[in-house]
Simulated scan of single mutants.
Amino acid sequence: MKGAADQQRLCWTDVERKEVVSGAAPCDVVFLNPDDPIPDAGNTLGQFGRDMYQVMVATAVVVDARVRRGIGIGVEMAAAVTLGTPVIVVAPRNSQYRSDVLEYRGVRVTDYVHPHVAALATEVVEDFTAAGRALVALAHRPKASQPRPEWLSAALTEYKDHVLDIDAPMLQALRKIESSAPAATSTTA
């Protein structure tokens, strides 16, 4: 949750994190939290770079698609594909991005998955426990990244050069990742 407006939204909580951990057992899961503040909140490129860095170092990006989401999650999904990071989308049947039957533009579609989700997701799962199982299954998959666009390279460079060394929550997460081999890492979106 980013602020008061999100109090009424369906967002990640400890419940969802516990379900991912349960599904991934016995593997350790380290969550990279994009909501942790960076030391210089005015460095917007650094903030964006932090989000992209988390996407880059994660085993997978787990997307909460139970309800409608915003532009940031779409950008993180597209960046993940570019960086070779698998995308696991939690989209229960008959929710915002997935439907058994959809009447759309005068056509009846069965087993519908939103086109952006279908194109970018490595896995579409029903719940967070299934996301944990998918995370483990993808943990040893080699990353096959695409050429990086300038906007992504600039953000990653800004973050690594000017923010990472003073980003205590991220440094702590990186230490956890390094000390718990093999660990599955997930950035939440």
Results as ranks from 00 to 15, higher is better:
residue 117 V to C: 03
residue 167 D to L: 11
residue 75 V to C: 06
residue 51 D to V: 11
residue 172 Q to I: 13
residue 178 E to R: 15
residue 127 D to A: 14
residue 81 V to P: 01
residue 11 C to A: 12
residue 87 V to S: 03
residue 168 A to G: 11
residue 185 T to N: 01
residue 67 V to P: 01
residue 46 G to Q: 08
residue 169 P to S: 08
residue 138 L to G: 09
residue 187 T to N: 06
residue 120 L to W: 12
residue 123 E to G: 04
residue 7 Q to T: 13
residue 58 A to V: 11
residue 83 L to A: 07
residue 97 Y to C: 02
residue 38 I to M: 08
residue 10 L to P: 01
residue 90 V to F: 09
residue 55 V to C: 10
residue 136 V to A: 13
residue 25 A to E: 04
residue 49 G to T: 05
residue 184 A to E: 05
residue 110 T to Q: 06
residue 174 L to F: 10
residue 2 K to N: 12
residue 36 D to A: 15
residue 30 V to H: 06
residue 41 A to Y: 05
residue 93 R to V: 02
residue 181 A to Y: 11
residue 125 V to E: 03
residue 149 P to Y: 04
residue 169 P to F: 02
residue 146 Q to D: 06
residue 174 L to W: 07
residue 65 A to H: 00
residue 42 G to D: 14
residue 176 K to N: 12
residue 153 S to V: 11
residue 174 L to Y: 08
residue 169 P to I: 10
residue 141 R to Y: 05
residue 189 A to E: 03
residue 5 A to L: 09
residue 41 A to T: 11
residue 137 A to M: 12
residue 10 L to F: 06
residue 57 V to M: 09
residue 65 A to M: 00
residue 118 A to E: 02
residue 89 V to D: 02
residue 138 L to K: 10
residue 9 R to G: 00
residue 100 D to G: 11
residue 77 M to I: 06
residue 91 A to V: 04
residue 15 V to S: 12
residue 176 K to W: 07
residue 79 A to H: 04
residue 1 M to Q: 12
residue 111 D to I: 13
residue 71 I to Y: 02
residue 64 D to N: 15
residue 23 G to A: 03
residue 131 A to V: 08
residue 115 P to H: 12
residue 147 P to K: 13
residue 124 V to W: 04
residue 78 A to Y: 07
residue 167 D to Y: 11
residue 72 G to W: 00
residue 9 R to I: 01
residue 168 A to N: 07
residue 91 A to T: 03
residue 33 N to F: 04
residue 102 L to C: 03
residue 16 E to L: 06
residue 173 A to P: 05
residue 47 Q to W: 11
residue 82 T to N: 08
residue 28 D to Q: 14
residue 124 V to K: 01
residue 161 D to N: 15
residue 85 T to A: 05
residue 17 R to G: 00
residue 154 A to S: 15
residue 158 E to H: 08
residue 52 M to Q: 12
residue 2 K to S: 14
residue 147 P to F: 05
residue 165 D to N: 13
residue 46 G to V: 05
residue 61 V to A: 11
residue 118 A to Q: 04
residue 142 P to D: 02
residue 2 K to W: 07
residue 65 A to Y: 03
residue 131 A to I: 04
residue 51 D to W: 06
residue 20 V to K: 07
residue 111 D to E: 10
residue 109 V to D: 01
residue 144 A to W: 09
residue 148 R to K: 12
residue 81 V to D: 07
residue 133 R to V: 10
residue 76 E to Q: 15
residue 122 T to R: 11
residue 10 L to N: 13
residue 28 D to E: 14
residue 69 R to Q: 05
residue 84 G to I: 10
residue 89 V to R: 03
residue 185 T to Q: 04
residue 148 R to S: 07
residue 133 R to H: 08
residue 70 G to R: 05
residue 157 T to P: 02
residue 90 V to P: 01
residue 107 V to Q: 04
residue 34 P to S: 09
residue 170 M to E: 10
residue 32 L to G: 08
residue 44 T to F: 14
residue 38 I to A: 12
residue 160 K to N: 03
residue 137 A to F: 03
residue 166 I to Q: 14
residue 56 M to E: 13
residue 188 T to V: 06
residue 100 D to Q: 13
residue 45 L to P: 04
residue 116 H to M: 15
residue 36 D to S: 14
residue 65 A to S: 02
residue 173 A to S: 15
residue 76 E to F: 09
residue 77 M to R: 10
residue 68 R to S: 06
residue 164 L to Y: 13
residue 145 S to H: 13
residue 108 R to P: 02
residue 168 A to Y: 05
residue 98 R to T: 01
residue 9 R to Y: 08
residue 10 L to I: 00
residue 71 I to D: 03
residue 36 D to C: 14
residue 98 R to L: 01
